[in-house]
Amino acid sequence: MVISMVVPLSRMCEGEKGKIRKLELPPITRERLCGLGFVSGEEIQLIKVAPFGDPKVYRIKGTDITLRDDISMWILVETSSISLSYASKGDYLVSLINGGMGFRERLRLLGIEEGKGLTVIGNLGRRIEISVKGNYATLSRGQAMRIIVRER
């Protein structure tokens, strides 16, 4: 079963899609964003992260809009998937891995593959503890950022 989650737009991962729920922004900013199509129910996708991590490019109503995290953190989106880095304890399904062949290969050795399950057993501090088919593994935050999971 897929449970949708509400997360700030800034926390979406490259390539991920979501539906806008709410803009918790001052009226002036909200109005400008409304004119660009940021209204609730609208589908939005994170297209690209700038070289230094911020700002990010989002696609909404067919156009690409750049927003900094200082604004996008106040836009709440409903998404069925989140980055593993933000996942709390529980069972998840891996829906997307952002990375090259090497990264995928290393994850495959741990049993993490797109479409397969994993369980988060601890998410505190700098590392994330998971278990895959009974095997214990830890991932760094950077690695976990690039793994998109869905709750199940």
């Binding site: 700002p55 809009i65 750049t66």
Partner: peptide, 10 residues
Amino acid sequence: EPSTLIMELP
């Protein structure tokens, strides 16, 4: 106040 960046990439 920092300048805002709400910018379209045409």
